[in-house]
Amino acid sequence: MEIYRAILCSYVFSWIYILSSLPLTLSYRTTKVFNFAHPIFITYGAYVVIIVNEVLGREIPLAVAVFLAFVVGGLVSLISHLLVFKPLSYQRVSSNVYMVTSMGLWFIYQYVLYIVCQLLTRRYDVNFLSYSTIEYKDVRFLQDVLGLNSMPQYTITATLIGVSVGVALYILFNKTVLGLSLRGIADNASLVAICGVPINRLVNLTWFLVGGITALSGVIWVNFSGSTTPDLGLNIVVDNFAAAFIGGLYSLPITAVASIVLALIENMLLAVLNYYFGVQPTVRIAIVFGIVLAILVARPPMGAGGGLPYRFIKRVSRK
């Protein structure tokens, strides 16, 4: 069995899912908003890179791509909060209203992107609605210097971005007062407010970080995939939400592990099932959902919905 490509796909998808589901969990913990528009940040991250790459000339450096995607993703997220979610919070609406609103927001962002792509396609005579791979020239330089030319560029891009974000988040949440305050808001916002922490500013920062980090998975995507469309987020949404749900919309480490497990199931497990048992890859979504449901039943999420953990209630009742 040719396992090499399946391993590569699992590896890259692990990073893409981690970078998109960790911020989803983070935003839910901090703001209690389950944002259905979240996957659009991946698409916007990818399209910022595509548009700049095409408009300013080919071969954008990774450093520039990361900066632009992070800023644009962060701003889109922040604007969504300031113009939509924050006003709703003043009206003390239910979580259902947030969900429906965020779905509406998703469609608006999605179709704005379609309009932009159609206009750009006409203006530049390049198909922005389905765009091919982008190579980063500074990563290629790095490959030349380190003698890594035989390695696909996207593995290096994914590693660079993934590890950098991981380290930065670790330092932010464990070594800084700012991170401590953010964790405090997630656990008990009222208590943090009493301590004089500017909650509004920190919530704004959280939304910015959430959008920015998620957009970085789009930077990896355009380097990895042979085609990027405005439906990118739509196609990733199931795995994205599944990983966050397995982590209970609470635990960042479990969300990260769930992302890796999902990537392995989708790529490795299906390749094995096809090769040894003749199962066609068309059943992918059913298998992924079957496993997700099994995990959720066996290990119910900790904080989804804001209620007490199911197993905790079970333990209490046993006592």
Partner: peptide, 15 residues
């Protein structure tokens, strides 16, 4: 046979 509407088809190519 591979299914349409996926984000990526890398694992299908691996198969």
């Amino acid at each position: 046979v591979y299914q349409s509407g996926q984000a990526d088809y890398g694992s299908d190519v691996a198969s």
